[in-house]
């Protein structure tokens, strides 16, 4: 509990034994299978990857236009777009008063 820690200054609090929080044996035993599953997955389509980076911009523009009262804007389409965006950008969309579902 109080072993010296070469990575910390002298006089500082020593480490607490956190060993009980290590991943469970059953999980560690599953890792090779997870590795195989990951290796078998095809890499993401580069086109889809590029589209993903465009999604937040498209969603933000659509929402701004919707807030401005544009009748031709399909808000649900914007929500669908925004659902693929990272959390930070979905928060921006939420600022527009639109509830966005959990991303897939």
């Amino acid at each position: 509990m109080n072993r010296p820690d070469p990575d910390c200054p002298a006089g500082g609090p020593g480490p607490v034994d956190l060993g009980a929080l290590a991943p469970r044996r059953a999980f560690l035993d599953r890792l090779p299978a997870i590795g195989r599953q990951a290796a078998d997955r095809p890499p993401e389509d580069p086109l889809l990857e590029a589209a993903r980076s465009f999604v937040p911009v498209a969603a933000a523009l659509a929402i701004l236009a919707w807030i401005a009262g544009g009748s031709a804007i399909d808000a649900s389409g914007a929500i669908t777009l925004a659902a693929g965006a990272p959390d930070e950008q979905r928060a921006f969309v939420a600022l527009g008063g639109v509830r966005v579902g959990e991303a897939p």
Partner: peptide
């Protein structure tokens, strides 16, 4: 929960490794 999320993260990361 940490184990479930770890599995998801590893699979997503490998899938998007190109990025």
């Amino acid at each position: 929960d940490a184990e479930d999320t770890t599995q998801t993260v590893l699979l997503v990361a490998i899938e998007r490794l190109g990025s």
